[in-house]
Each structure stands twice: as C-alpha cells, then as structure tokens.
Simulated assay, not measured.
Amino acid sequence: MPFRKIIFWLHLIAGLIAGAVIAVMSVTGIGIAFEEEILKWFDRKVSRIEVRPASGEKLPLMELKQRVESARPGFRVTSVVIHRDPTLAWEFHADGDGPLYVDPYSGATNDTRSHGAHEVIHKLEEWHRWLGDKDGQASVGRLVTGVSNLMFVVVCVSGLYLWFPRSWGRRALRPLVGLKFGYKGKARDFNLHNVFGFWSLPVLLVLGGTAVAISFEWGHRLVFTVAGEEAPKSRNYGMMFVPPPVVPVPSEGAARLPLDEAFARVATAFPDWKSISLEQFPAVSGPAIEPLDFGVTLPDHMPSRAYIPVKSDPFTGGILQAVRFQDRSPGLQARVWMRFLHTGGAFGLPGKIIASLACAASLVLVWTGFALSWRRFFGKRRRSVPSASSPDFPSP
C-alpha cells in the first residue's frame, strides 16, 4: 500500500474514533476559556464602588473583617484581595465561598452575582476534562479525553501531510486555502475540511500537544525530562509550591505589625502592583510564628507570570520571600506555559479568541470528516460539480 494511503487511513480512523470527544472538548473549551471575563461581567455592577476624594479614610482591615463576620453569621473570612483601582471593591473570601464585595470606606457589602455562571462553567470543565464522569481525575472519562487528545495530534500531523498537494500551482492550491462556494456535496466537504484545517492547524497543534502534557503523567514528566529536571509529583498548582521561609526570632516584647501596615510594606516593595491578596489571615494564637502569606498581581496577561507569592515578616513587614515566574526552573516555566497556551490565556484576551476560533474550526473539521467518511462507506458513488477527483480538487 502506498505511504500516502497509509497516512490517509491513519488520519481517517483516528478522526472517527476521537471525533465525537474532540467535538465535546471543543465546545466546552470555548465556554471555559472566557471564565474570568464571564464572571467579571456578571459582577460588573456589584464589584464597583463610588470613588472617594483623596482625603477619604479607609476602615482598618481587621475592623472590616469584624463587620463582615458580624453582619453575616457563618461567613468566616479567610482571605482578602485589595485592588489598586479605586473603583473596585475589596474582595473578602470564606472557605469555599465568595467573593463578597466590600466598600473599604463604609463597610457596605454586596454579594456576587456570578454563582450560577460559575456552576455552569464548573460543569463545562468537568465535561471538558473527563466527560462529566463523577470519578473526576481517576475516571475512565479522564483516560478517554487523554487518549482523544493524543489521537487529535495524530489527526493534525497526518492531516498536514495529506494537505500538501501533489503538484504546486495556483489551480492546485486554490481549493485548499480558500473557500469555494460553488462546490456541492463531497467536493464542498473536502473544500471546507481542507481550508478550515489549513488555517487552524498551527493553533490546533498547540492545543492538542499541550493537552497531552496536561492529560498524561508521562507527558507531564516529559516536559521536565527534556529540561533535564526532576518532575514534581503534583500536576496542578501544587507544582508551584516553594518551602516557606523561617521568620526571624523577634525581639522580646515585639508586637505584630497591623495588617494594613503589612499591606503597605508589600505595596512599597512592588510599586507596579495591580492587586494584593492576603491568602490566609494569621492565627491570633499558637506556638508557631508563620510568615504573612501575600499574593501580588502585576499588570501581565498571563496569570502565573503576573502572580508573585510573597512571604513577609509579621513583626517588621520585611519581605522574606518573593518567587517571580522568571525565578522558576526552565522545566516548570515550560510546563506552566503549556497550561496557559492550552486555553490561549498565555496571550490574554486575543489569545483566548484565537484559541476559541480554532476550536470552532475543529467542529467544522469533525462534521466534514464524518460526512466524508459516511459518503466513502455508505454513500452512493456519484460525481458532484466540480468533482473531488478533478484537477481542481485533488483527492487523498
């Protein structure tokens, strides 16, 4: 059998096996790519506050915390986010709940309106990652989506080989790179399949290749092996973990710094900050002295590059540890890049739009691929004008 025929049948069989799952992951992928933008849109009104004059005084953070917990029994504040933008309310979070938007000047609160949207997106994520299987990470659905991602890469690579025309020229390339609206039936489906495949292929290869690293333990480890590093056991955000620093022994009788002053010290250390979060309110008692756990977000469209975990001295406010993205190992940086290349988020909103358009194109590829396969195996053999075997449209 000629080599081209072998590649063609590999392309066809892989597409038929994984096509339905690829379609599900494409549809759900479009939905979850814009999670941040969707949730912000739902909260666009409740997350805003009236801009006060420069002389306006914010309430102390601990007082705000007490007011919130007194007004809302059962809402035990665990973390808070403050924004540089003076029109944005502060965000208070409790275990498994939030955000609760709080006006730092008056203490007035507003509930989030995005709970429903968040639930829908969460369901889409479950279907995208493991086809909604209740067993989640350890499910058969997770294995199915992983194998489908791998087969999708095979489909993309084999499709690129099949796309190359046997003879070059304007007449040969015209139906491969541009839509021809006069085609019908088989020729139309071939035209759509080739054109959408050609223009979306670079992005689809990135989406599929990064999905393999996310889906499989061996794919995750391969990234670090290529970089000459040992792969961390965790494949989620836990791989970013860095052992916390030890707080220097304070002088006798030293008092803890007020949290507002601790925030101010962090803001001074990172003058271009966009938001600062206190990831965990410090315990009021206990034998161990833990550093204050902050998170600084800088103006950068890629979340993991924008976010800097910061540990500070609870007595002096001095910065004990700040791990920037560029301080990470090459293997870890590459692995994080893959995570956000997969969603398009590595390049902000434009990247998400491009990734979503590629996912939409993959739906066209799945549909036309199934249609062409149906005609091959079950359809009546008849010619359409122009025919798929004509010089205007080379057949595999």
Rank of each mutant, 00 (worst) to 15 (best):
G348E: 08
G344C: 07
G345N: 11
I354L: 14
F377L: 14
P386D: 05
P350R: 08
W374F: 15
K352D: 06
S384N: 15
R375M: 07
A361D: 06
R383F: 00
A358S: 07
A360D: 02
V385R: 09
L341M: 14
A360P: 11
K352Q: 13
W367N: 05
W367K: 07
G379L: 12
S356P: 10
R382T: 10
L372R: 09
G344E: 04
G369N: 07
F370C: 12
L365I: 07
G348Y: 08
S387F: 04
T368E: 08
S362D: 03
I353Y: 00
R376G: 03
R382F: 10
R375V: 00
S373C: 09
A361T: 05
W367P: 00
F378E: 05
W374D: 13
K352I: 05
A371Y: 03
V385K: 06
L365N: 02
P350I: 09
F347I: 12
W367F: 14
S387H: 09
V366K: 01
L341E: 10
A388S: 10
G345F: 00
H342C: 09
L341A: 14
G348T: 00
L372G: 04
S389H: 15
L365H: 04
P350N: 12
G379R: 13
R376Q: 12
T368D: 09
R381Y: 11
L349E: 05
A388I: 10
L349C: 05
L349P: 02
F347N: 13
S389P: 01
F370S: 05
I354F: 08
G348S: 07
V364P: 13
R375K: 11
S387P: 07
L341C: 14
S373Q: 06
A346D: 11
G344H: 08
L363M: 12
R383P: 00
L363P: 03
G369V: 00
G345A: 15
G348V: 01
V364E: 03
T343G: 15
L341V: 11
G348I: 01
G379F: 13
I353A: 08
S356R: 04
K352N: 04
A388K: 10
V385T: 05
L349M: 08
V385P: 03
T368N: 02
S387E: 05
A355K: 03
F347S: 15
L363C: 09
T368P: 03
A360L: 11
S389M: 14
S387W: 02
K380L: 15
G351E: 10
K380Q: 14
V364I: 14
W367Y: 14
L365P: 01
S389R: 15
A388R: 06
V364W: 00
R382A: 10
L365C: 01
A371F: 02
W374G: 11
F378A: 15
S384K: 07
F378P: 07
G344F: 07
G344K: 08
F340R: 08
S356A: 04
T368C: 02
L341W: 01
W374Q: 13
A388W: 02
P350F: 10
S387N: 04
R375N: 07
R383Q: 04
F340C: 08
K352A: 04
V364H: 03
A358G: 05
L363V: 03
G345R: 10
R383T: 08
W374V: 13
L365F: 04
R376H: 10
S373H: 06
S384Q: 12
L341N: 11
P386I: 07
L363W: 09
